[in-house]
């Protein structure tokens, strides 16, 4: 049941066709796990807080550095040296007091991932390296939790939505590992992709629209184009090949 304040706060989205109070109530009940408090994590968490999800946990192990500030908009000059999750928590609490938020300082590993994501309805992939993304992908599949993938490089960004047992997963999309490097990026790229991930999360929770499943969306900020590639569920995928496809 929505409060009077909530009805007013979310009025403009409640009046969206097929969204309604019922959609807002679904958002209020949703528990979202954000893996990463960097560029993508900043954009997704801000818009999911503003939209009124019920509960959010944001996980990261880094501290804020000066070189983060061109894109990680949750972190400001005064936050340099703080844990990213503490900096994020402080801003997000001020954005919307109605959302329960939890910040966890942790490095996501195979050993702790199941415990970290337990009891969450959705996972936002806002990480910055493929090995950890694969760890989270596997855990999401094992626990049957939808995963909302995003990645950026320079002016290019990508997004794809993964529904365990139904759609291609991250391992169907990528099989190797990109060489570790300091990746180039302009802040607007994770902003665009993070907003796409947040849009997918909201659509999934509310149950409207067509999800970005089995489709890799590529944003090319330099030529200002979006392009879509078909991604098929790989029957021999080492992460999801054993899962029976549900219609």
């Amino acid at each position: 049941m929505l409060t009077t304040d909530e009805l007013e706060r979310y009025e403009r989205q409640i009046i969206i066709e097929k969204f309604g109070e019922e959609g807002q109530e679904k958002l209020k009940r949703a528990k979202v796990f954000i893996a990463g408090a960097g560029g993508l994590g900043s954009a997704t968490s801000i818009y999911l807080m503003a939209a009124g999800v019920g509960m959010m946990r944001i996980v990261d192990h880094d501290r804020v550095e000066l070189s983060n500030l061109n894109r990680q908009i949750l972190h400001w000059d005064e936050d340099i040296g703080k844990l990213k999750v503490d900096s994020a928590l402080e801003k997000l609490k001020r954005l919307n007091k109605g959302v329960e938020i939890e910040a966890t300082e942790a490095t996501i590993t195979e050993a702790n991932v199941s415990q970290l994501v337990a009891d969450f309805d959705l996972i936002v992939d806002a990480m910055d390296n493929l090995p950890t993304r694969y760890v989270v992908n596997k855990a999401a599949l094992e626990r049957n939790i939808p995963l909302f993938h995003g990645a950026v490089y320079g002016f290019e960004g990508r997004a794809m939505t993964i529904i365990p047992g139904q759609t291609a997963c991250l391992r169907c999309l990528y099989r190797g590992v990109f060489p570790q490097e300091k990746f180039p990026v302009i802040g607007v790229t994770p902003a665009v992709i993070g907003c796409i991930q947040a849009t997918e999360v909201i659509k999934y929770i509310v149950g409207i629209g067509e999800l970005l499943t089995n489709r890799l969306l590529i944003f090319d900020g330099l030529d200002m184009k979006f392009k879509e590639f078909k991604v098929k569920k790989d029957p021999s995928c080492e992460h999801c090949g054993h899962l029976v496809t549900k219609e």
Binding site: M127, N129, L130, A151, V152, Y153, F178
Partner: peptide
């Protein structure tokens, strides 16, 4: 083109894209 990759047949008029993996966040 996976899993055939380099062996995948193509015909005139087809369009190829070369995609790098990216993982920045």
């Amino acid at each position: 083109a996976y899993p055939e990759e380099l062996g995948k047949p193509v015909k005139p008029g087809d369009e190829l894209d070369i995609l790098f993996m990216i993982d920045g966040g």
